[in-house]
Design a protein around this nucleic acid. Sequence first.
DNA 1: ATAGACCTTCCCATCGTTGGAAGGTCAAGC
DNA 2: GCTTGACCTTCCAACGATGGGAAGGTCTAT
Lengths: 149, 149
Amino acid sequence: MNIGEAAKASGISGKMIRYYESIGLIPSVGRTEAGYRTFSDKDIHTLRFIARARSLGFSVEQMSNLLALWRDSNRASSDVKAVAYAHIEELDSKIEKLISMRQTLQHLAEHCQGDNRPSCPILGDLAGAPESAGTAPAQVRPPLACEEA
Amino acid sequence: MNIGEAAKASGISGKMIRYYESIGLIPSVGRTEAGYRTFSDKDIHTLRFIARARSLGFSVEQMSNLLALWRDSNRASSDVKAVAYAHIEELDSKIEKLISMRQTLQHLAEHCQGDNRPSCPILGDLAGAPESAGTAPAQVRPPLACEEA
DNA sequence: ATAGACCTTCCCATCGTTGGAAGGTCAAGC
DNA sequence: GCTTGACCTTCCAACGATGGGAAGGTCTAT
């Protein structure tokens, strides 16, 4: 299997497959005499694992851990779970940050007339002017309790 | 005002101030004879504007637009609002993606025993095995309607 | 033989930020 | 005046994950 076919079969671009190989995330695959990479079914399976892990937002380093656990038939599922929960916490803090940004921005935008006059609470807030609505300028609102605890 | 004082006063590191100047986000500030940058109150105001905009997640390009609008006393507030809403939509799509990842991962982790045995639905899902819980392996759950429309 | 589709390696760009090296400047103390 | 330490300057590189492209080799079908 060529790298192009491997890319199609795994959903990972050829570029990225080479990159993952170069940084050691996947072991070096076989080569033809002419130097073309050849991918076994096992290689494809690994690539699909990676594609799925990427789609869940795992970093290359986390995927490296997960792949090691996957290959280790003596693993403890608690180790896998720990990696997963660590990632969930990262996701949570990103989500909180984004939601808080969104919240603040939404609030500001709601109070903007959106007409052809220059007066605008969004710019007012960015410029540090105390808002008419009485909310502090640089504070970010507390996050929504959105991730079902 | 030195760059160090400007950094403290604005909350933007000296490194970043130089960077923002180099890419033209802020106009070139004054210099002493020895080549040291000098920051006026107006410069500091601009830097604070930028710091606040960054904290709301605006990109450098968006900040450039916002700064131009800020400086234009003939702006239409609708233009500012448009920038804000475009950014809110970007935030929304990021939030949706992250929440959907979180959701999937949470679901998998909940079904993981987390003991010292190797069997683990998280790895099972990543490896593409059909789950015992009956959920499709590679599908991501629909996003939570979390951003109060 | 030749065209076109593939493959290889290598370098560069992104985005925002940080780090460091090598060197100049300033202010305080001796 | 000289030294010391804290500042400043520019330049170069790195991060993480990905894409783009150039220059060149290989395979397959006509």
